[in-house]
Write a protein that binds this DNA or RNA. Structure first.
Lengths: 136, 136
DNA sequence: CATCATCCGTAGCCATTGCTACATTTACAT
DNA sequence: ATGTAAATGTAGCAATGGCTACGGATGATG
C-alpha cells in the first residue's frame, strides 16, 4: 500500500536550493534593471528594490559573487559577470513573456505584475513555449 | 534619482513567511490526498511524498499544529483540523485548475504536473478567475 | 507476553534569509 | 584638510527547512 504513494513531481529535497536559485534570478534581474535605469547598482538600491535591509542584500551579493553571477569590490557598485548577465537576460525575457501572457489572458496589470513575479520562476521551457504561442 | 527605484510588487520582506505559507499549503493538500487514498496519513507517508526525511516532516507538522491546520497525537496519524481541511480544499481546487489550464494551453502532462506545483502558490484570485474563464 | 521491525521524536548540525546594532569606508562640503 | 552624512560591512540573533544519529513507542507475530 505504502509503495503506492506518489512522490511529488518536484521533490521537496530541492526546496532550499530551489529557493536559493530563485533569489539568484531575482537579484541578477534587479541588478540589470537598476544599471539600465540609473547607470549603476548599489547595495542600498537593491535593498530599496526588494524592501529588505542592506544587510540582507550584502550577504546575498556576497554569495552570488561566489557563484560568479555578480561582481563588486567593497563599498563599490554591484556589477554583473558575463554569467550573471546571461542569466539576467534569460530571466528578464521569461518574466516579460509571463507578464504579457497574464495580461493577454485578461488579468489586470496590477495583479499580472504581482503574480508574474511569483510564477516566472516555475515556468519551464515547455510552458514558456506554450505561452509564447498563445501570445501570437 | 534614488526615489525612482520601483519596489517589487511582492516585497522580499515577505519571502520567508511566504515560503512558510507555501509549505503549509503543500502539507494540508498532501494530508488530504493521502487520507483520501489510503485512509490515514502518517509522518512517513508525508516523508515519502515529499522526498524528505521524517524529521523534517515531524518538525513541520508540529508547526502546522500550532497554526491550527493539522492535528495529531505523538505516534499517531496526522489529521486535518477544520481550518486545515478548508485550506486544503481551496488549495487542491486551485491546483487542479492550474494543471488543467496548462494542459489546455498545450503543455504535456509531465511538464504541466511539474510546473503547476510551483505555479499554484502564486496564482492570485484574479489570475485564477482568468484561467477558469479560459477553460470554458 | 516477549521480541522485533517499523514508526516517530529529540538532539544537534548546516544553509538561507530576515533583523538590529555597531563599526568602517567613502565622498562631499566647508 | 577635516569633518560629517551616507553607504557598506560585520557581529550576532531568530525562523524555516534540510540532514544524520540515536532512542523511545507501537504494534504485530511467535
Amino acid at each position: 500500500m505504502k509503495d503506492k504513494i506518489k512522490a511529488r513531481s518536484v521533490p521537496f529535497s530541492q526546496t532550499r536550493s530551489r529557493h536559493a536559485s530563485e533569489t539568484a534570478e531575482d537579484y541578477v534581474e534587479a541588478v540589470m534593471e537598476l544599471i539600465e535605469e540609473q547607470g549603476e547598482c548599489r547595495v542600498l538600491d537593491l535593498a530599496r528594490y526588494f524592501n529588505v535591509s542592506h544587510v540582507t542584500v550584502s550577504r546575498i551579493v556576497k554569495r552570488l559573487q561566489e557563484e560568479d553571477l555578480l561582481y563588486s569590490k567593497p563599498y563599490k557598485p554591484v556589477e554583473l559577470t558575463a554569467k550573471g548577465s546571461k542569466l539576467a537576460k534569460r530571466v528578464k525575457e521569461r518574466h516579460l513573456i509571463v507578464l504579457a501572457f497574464l495580461i493577454k489572458l485578461g488579468v489586470d496589470k496590477v495583479n499580472a505584475d504581482i503574480d508574474s513575479e511569483g510564477i516566472e520562476h516555475h515556468v519551464g521551457s515547455k510552458t514558456l513555449a506554450a505561452m509564447k504561442k498563445f501570445l501570437k
